[in-house]
Computed example of a mutant assay.
Amino acid sequence: MTSSSTPGLTRFNTAEDDTARAALRAICASGAWAEEVLARRPYRDAEELLAASDTAVARLTPDDLTEAMAAHPPIGRPRPGDPVSAREQRGMTGATDRLKAEMLELNLAYQEKFGHVFLICATGLTAEQMRDSVRNRIDNPPEREREIVREELGRINRVRLARLAVRPENEGTPRP
């Protein structure tokens, strides 16, 4: 461990495999991603962990991406009782009813076209930015959209892993 290690990263590095695997699967539902990140422990610092995640995301097969996306709720409809989903989609909280209805319509059209949820790293985005993004991406060819989804998944995983790595000592078991 270097001096740049954090309490959360130390706990993650020293956790039993099953505990660390569960923490990773809460971050990203892809089993392939979780196993690759798990296999590279221990990490010297958060940057090394994030780089391992980036590598694992780049190696995901189409089936692995599908597995990862299946765990993401549609924008504007975070899972009830899921603080991670609610926190990440906070930008939709103050959206008007009209904008929420438009997002629902766009989400459904996107899902019908591509066969999966519209995936975006929503952390820090406003409802309008998310709406504009789905509007812009819905006309993409499937191959281009799949690569954008991979990029967005990588961003989401980075945000969640960073939270895991810096989690204070008194917050217990690693989780996103």
Rank of each mutant, 00 (worst) to 15 (best):
S3G: 14
S3H: 13
G8P: 02
T10A: 15
T14R: 13
A15F: 00
A20M: 01
I27N: 14
A29V: 05
E35H: 10
E36C: 09
A39K: 13
R41G: 05
Y43Q: 07
Y43V: 06
R44D: 11
D45N: 15
D45V: 08
E48Q: 15
L49C: 08
D54L: 04
A56R: 03
V57K: 06
L60F: 00
D63S: 12
D64M: 01
L65A: 08
A68L: 00
A68E: 01
A70I: 04
V84L: 10
S85P: 03
E88D: 15
G94P: 05
A95M: 06
D97H: 08
K100L: 09
K100T: 08
K100A: 11
E102G: 06
M103A: 08
M103R: 06
E105V: 09
L106V: 07
L108E: 15
L108H: 14
A109D: 14
G115Y: 05
H116A: 13
T123I: 11
T126L: 04
A127Q: 07
D132Y: 00
R135G: 02
R135P: 02
R137V: 01
N140K: 03
E143Y: 02
E145M: 02
R146M: 11
R146H: 10
R150H: 07
E152H: 06
E152D: 07
V159S: 07
A162N: 11
V166E: 14
E169C: 01
G172R: 02
P174G: 05
